[in-house]
C-alpha cells in the first residue's frame, strides 16, 4: 500500500502550479527566483510521517521548486532527496509535453515528430526507473540479499545521473524555449537549474564510483513486483552502468507503449510515477 496522503495534502495546499494567479505556482516561483517579486505565499512545510510518505510529499514540493523545498528530516534515508527529484522530472516532462502539443512545426503538431516522441518516451522510462530505485531504497528493500546495500547504491549513485540526463535531453527537445527565463515555459530552466544543484551541489554526497549491479537488481523479484520490467529495461539511464556515453533511446513497441502511457497520465492529470496520484494541474 503506497502512502500518498501527505503528498495529497501538499498538492491541495499548494494548488495548480500552472495557474498564473497561484502564489505557489510556476509563474510566481520564476518571478521570485528572478527577483521580480518577493515570495509572499506561506512558507512550505514538509509534513511528518513515515519515510515513504515523506518521500512523496517531498516529491510534491520538488515538482514545484527543489530550491524552496525543505530538507528531509534528520535520519531520512539517503535516497530521499534523489527520489524527490523525480518530482522535478515529472514537471519537466509535463512542461515539455505541453509545449510540443501546442507548437506546430513543419505543418503539424511538434508532438507528432517521431524523434521527439522517442525522447519523451525515454525520459518517461528514466522517471519510472528512478522512481522504482529510490522508492524501494527509501522503503529499505534489499532485493539482492547476498549484496546488501546494492539497491541504495543504485539509488544514490546512478539515479541522480539518470534524472539529470533525462532533464538535459528534454532541454534539447524544448529548444530555445528552454533557454528563456520568462514566459509560459520558463519554469523548465528553473527546475533544471535547481535539480542540478539538489543532486550535485556542494552539500550533496559524492557519487560512489563502484559499479552498480543494475541487471541483477532489475531482475530481482522485489523490483519486478514493483514495476513493469519491460518498461524499466527501456530506460536510457541503464546505459550509465556501462562505459559508453551514448544513451540509446527506446524503440519499437515499447517506445509506443511508453509514449501512450505518458500521454494518458498527462491527460488524466496524474503523476507519472508509480503512485499515479491525482494532481491539481491544469496545464
Amino acid at each position: 500500500m503506497i502512502t500518498t496522503t501527505l503528498a495529497d495534502t501538499v498538492e491541495e495546499t499548494l494548488g495548480d502550479p500552472f495557474d498564473a494567479t497561484n502564489p505557489h505556482g510556476f509563474h510566481a516561483l520564476v518571478d521570485t527566483a528572478e527577483g521580480r517579486r518577493p515570495f509572499d505565499a506561506a512558507p512550505w512545510h514538509l509534513p511528518d510521517g513515515d519515510p515513504e510518505s515523506v518521500l512523496h510529499a517531498l516529491r510534491a514540493l520538488h515538482r514545484r521548486s527543489p530550491a524552496l523545498a525543505p530538507a528531509p528530516p534528520a535520519g531520512a534515508p539517503a535516497a530521499t532527496v534523489v527520489g524527490a527529484s523525480v518530482g522535478a522530472l515529472d514537471s519537466a516532462l509535463r512542461i515539455t509535453l505541453r509545449h510540443l502539443r501546442s507548437r506546430h512545426l513543419y505543418g503539424a503538431p511538434a508532438s507528432d515528430l517521431p524523434a521527439l516522441r522517442t525522447l519523451l518516451a525515454g525520459a518517461y522510462a528514466d522517471l519510472l526507473l528512478c522512481d522504482t530505485l529510490t522508492t524501494l531504497a527509501v522503503r529499505g528493500t534489499e532485493p539482492l540479499p547476498d549484496r546488501p546495500g546494492a539497491l541504495a547504491h543504485a539509488a544514490e549513485a546512478l539515479a541522480p545521473r539518470a534524472l539529470q540526463g533525462a532533464m538535459d535531453r528534454l532541454s534539447v527537445v524544448m529548444g530555445s524555449r528552454f533557454y528563456i527565463r520568462e514566459g509560459a515555459h520558463s519554469s523548465f530552466q528553473r527546475l533544471l537549474y535547481e535539480t542540478q544543484r539538489a543532486l550535485f551541489g556542494a552539500d550533496r554526497p559524492v557519487l560512489d564510483p563502484e559499479p552498480v549491479p543494475l541487471a541483477a537488481l532489475l531482475a530481482a523479484p522485489a523490483v519486478v513486483g514493483s514495476a513493469d520490467p519491460v518498461l524499466l529495461a527501456a530506460a536510457p539511464g541503464l546505459a550509465l552502468t556501462g562505459s559508453s556515453r551514448r544513451v540509446p533511446q527506446p524503440g519499437g513497441a515499447v517506445q509506443e507503449r511508453l509514449y501512450e502511457e505518458l500521454v494518458a497520465r498527462y491527460e488524466a492529470g496524474t503523476t507519472f510515477d508509480h503512485t499515479r496520484r491525482p494532481l491539481p494541474d491544469r496545464p
Binding site: 544543484r197 550535485f200 551541489g201 554526497p205
Partner: peptide, 8 residues
Amino acid sequence: GPHGLLGP
C-alpha cells in the same frame, strides 16, 4: 560538483 565545483 559534490566536492565543491558548483560552489566554493
